[in-house]
Amino acid sequence: MATPRRQKRYKLKSEINVVPYIDVMLVLLIIFMVTTPMMNSSVDVQLPQADAKSLEQKKDPVLVSVLQDGQLYLTLSGEKKELVDEETLKNKVRVFVQVNPDVSVLVGGDERGAYGGVFKVLADLQQAGVSKVGLMGQPGESNQGKTSNGRK
């Protein structure tokens, strides 16, 4: 009678263990769920670095200035600065960029102004068909000789 027990104990299983496959699938699902929203960016902005030198311009750039109170000024390639509203800004920049596709578009915002005003201009420029926008700034003090908290 010892023989039948021995045969039962060593009988092979014909089932596949799918638990490790389910674990891997769930980990991949979580990774894709977390990374997918990060891949959708609505406004592509290339921010300049703090110690960067000014770029060489082939043509005069289109300048959009956002004042502290939200007023918009547009300067098209060396012309006079003019006060515009959002729709006029979109229309003029759209036409100008269609004629000159290689022209640079730069946005300068008042540092005391609200970030929302600059962000709205960036969204308007994207709707006008501008693919690359630069942000203007003034060079700051040199960071040499200062510690991380800004003191010497």
Rank of each mutant, 00 (worst) to 15 (best):
R112H: 11
S14V: 10
K81Q: 07
R94M: 12
G137L: 11
V34C: 07
V62L: 09
I30R: 06
V130G: 00
Q68I: 07
V19S: 14
Y73P: 01
T75A: 07
G137T: 13
D51I: 05
Q68A: 14
P139G: 09
Q46E: 07
E79P: 12
Q7K: 08
L135T: 09
M136Q: 14
E87G: 07
M39P: 01
I30Y: 09
K59V: 00
V27A: 14
S142I: 07
S77E: 11
M38E: 11
D23V: 15
N149R: 12
R151Q: 14
A52V: 02
V121G: 06
L72Q: 02
T35L: 11
I22K: 07
R9C: 03
V66M: 04
A128W: 05
S77N: 07
L76N: 02
K152C: 08
L122V: 07
K11W: 06
S42T: 15
L89P: 02
T3A: 13
P4Q: 12
N91P: 06
L28W: 12
K146Q: 09
G140V: 02
T147S: 14
L122F: 04
D60A: 08
P4A: 13
P48Y: 05
F32S: 03
Y21H: 06
M39Q: 10
L12A: 15
L125E: 03
T147V: 10
P139H: 11
F32I: 03
D102H: 00
V133P: 07
N100L: 00
V95Q: 07
G117S: 08
S142W: 05
V103P: 00
K11F: 13
Y10W: 12
G117F: 11
Q46R: 11
N149K: 15
K92R: 15
E111W: 04
V24Y: 12
Y115M: 13
V66R: 02
E56R: 07
S41N: 12
E15S: 13
V62K: 01
R9D: 06
T35D: 02
M39I: 08
P48A: 02
F96H: 10
E87T: 11
I16P: 01
K92M: 04
D51F: 06
L106Q: 02
Y21E: 05
K152M: 13
K11Y: 09
M1K: 13
N100D: 00
A128Q: 05
V45Q: 04
L89K: 04
G137Y: 14
G78Q: 01
S54E: 08
L89E: 02
G108R: 06
V18C: 05
Q57S: 01
I30L: 14
S77M: 08
Y115C: 04
L74Y: 06
L29G: 14
L28H: 04
L55R: 09
A50K: 08
V66I: 08
Q57L: 06
K59L: 01
V107N: 03
N17P: 00
I31R: 03
S14E: 13
K120T: 11
E87S: 10
L63K: 05
S14A: 11
V133L: 10
E111P: 03
V18T: 07
Q138V: 15
Q49A: 03
K80I: 10
